[in-house]
């Protein structure tokens, strides 16, 4: 048993701590914590078989009936309750004075003058309510991290993780088309179009419908299509895990920094030097276009990374 020397800890700092941790890890690792993606333990298989037998017996059918009737009851009850109260709400489409209030008028009146965005919705989500959007791009980020945590295969050189990776790759290749001429030719035409269209939506977010999220998704879809047709070998040349990490972290950091700058200067009454520019130009609207591009990069990379992780557990 490795003994902890209190003094060494303080003298040598974090490295000694990490070394000791590794020794502890070897001792405390429970057997179940290893075996990431193996088939279940024999005992589990036995249980599974038992459950399977039970599930085809009578008990299952009764349970099914209970579930079904309960679902119908809850669904009908909930909907009826909600609808009966919704009928009391102000009528849809009418000029409801409650919702069409000074705030929405303000957005339409001041949106263009303040943000320089012809598309008022972009002005709202990136400027007036930029804090929500900052949170939202972090939702995407946290989702990407969680999926990485769940699905990324171990990257080590030990035989076990190498086997896991090889197996994932083999199965991916087995179930995906290879060298499909029709697909490949279609994609040769479609993928550049999609990517150009995505970039257009992204860059024009403040002038026409669209913006970071939709543009980024279209970009990601273009990449995914390319991946489907030509496989990981081709996309891996320009897009691997390091690129993903660098682009996402960089774009998020840029986004957070610029929003932080705008918020702090705004709250403290300091002039931030970002004017709306000439209305309708592509380079107008202060930070709107760079922010759209940053969001679009995060979204596009995240979408592609999610798809790649689902397919073979790595980028």
């Amino acid at each position: 048993m490795a003994r902890i020397d209190w003094r060494r800890w303080i003298e040598e700092g974090g490295d000694a701590l990490d070394r000791d941790m590794r020794t502890f890890q070897a001792i405390t690792e429970a057997p179940e914590e290893r075996d990431p993606f193996e088939l279940p333990h024999p005992r589990e298989r036995l249980t599974y078989a038992r459950f399977h037998r039970w599930s085809h017996s009578k008990g299952e059918r009764i349970l099914k009936v209970i579930y079904f009737s309960l679902s119908v009851l809850i669904c009908l009850g909930l909907s009826a309750l909600l609808i009966s109260t919704a009928l009391d709400l102000p009528q849809f489409g009418a000029d409801a004075e409650l919702i069409d209030n000074d705030i929405s008028t303000f957005y339409v009146e001041e949106g263009l003058r303040h943000t320089g965005a012809m598309n008022i919705i972009t002005g709202i989500i990136l400027d007036f309510r930029g804090f929500d959007t900052l949170g939202e791009s972090h939702v995407l980020f946290v989702a990407a991290c969680t999926v990485l945590m769940l699905l990324r295969l171990p990257g080590g050189d030990d035989p076990e993780s190498q086997l896991a990776r090889r197996r994932a790759e083999a199965f991916d290749r087995h179930f995906e088309p290879r060298g499909d001429v029709i697909l490949a030719n279609c994609v040769r035409v479609l993928a550049p179009l999609l990517i150009v269209f995505g970039a257009y939506i992204l860059l024009n977010g403040h002038l026409s419908p669209g913006g970071g999220f939709s543009g980024g998704t279209v970009l990601g879809a273009g990449l995914i299509l390319y991946l489907c047709a030509f496989g990981f070998a081709r996309t891996g040349r320009f897009f691997n895990f390091k690129v993903f990490r660098a682009v996402t972290s960089g774009a998020l950091a840029f986004y957070a920094l610029s929003k932080g700058y705008v918020f702090i200067t705004g709250a403290n009454g300091i002039e931030n030097g970002l004017g709306p520019g000439v209305y309708g130009r592509i380079l107008s609207g202060g930070l709107l276009m760079p922010l759209s591009v940053a969001v679009g990069l995060v979204v596009g990379c995240t979408m592609y990374a999610l798809y790649a992780l689902f397919r073979k557990g790595d980028l």
Binding site: I103, F131, A267
Partner: peptide, 13 residues
């Protein structure tokens, strides 16, 4: 109160 952005509430956060 701390307004986020130049305009603050109720237009912004």
């Amino acid at each position: 109160l701390y307004p986020l952005g130049e305009f603050g509430a109720p237009m912004g956060n």
